[in-house]
């Protein structure tokens, strides 16, 4: 039962990573790509970590796995904001609907 749940979570994680990459390929500008990577990839990582921690051999290993998540979340949120802010300071205009 737990094995099945873990597998479903890993598959969901892989799906969100794929969605993040699809977003990176299809979204028109750096701002919307940041949305895709920051949100979809982090959720994917969260699913993978949850799935693996269900399989972990001890509680403390599971906790250690889950500890990776807030660290990456903080990293992505901070880096995402920093990139968006610099892009804005460099004068990169966001894509508007109707443009090519």
């Amino acid at each position: 039962m737990l094995d099945w749940l873990a597998m479903v979570l890993l598959l969901a994680g892989a799906f969100f990573f794929l969605a993040g990459t699809v977003g990176l390929l299809r979204f028109p500008d750096v701002y919307s790509r940041l949305h895709a990577l920051a949100k979809a990839d982090n959720l994917g990582l969260g699913c993978v970590l949850m799935g693996l921690s269900l399989q972990a051999e001890s509680l403390v290993t599971a906790l250690k796995l889950l500890l990776v998540w807030p660290l990456v979340l903080a990293a992505s949120a901070g880096v995402g904001f920093a990139i968006a802010r610099r892009a804005r300071a460099l004068g990169i205009q966001p894509w508007r609907k109707g443009e090519p």
Binding site: G44, V68, S76, V79, I83
Partner: peptide
């Protein structure tokens, strides 16, 4: 954006 990619996917 590579910095974000390496952080999350790499982990």
């Amino acid at each position: 954006l590579m910095a974000l990619l390496f952080g999350t996917t790499g982990a």
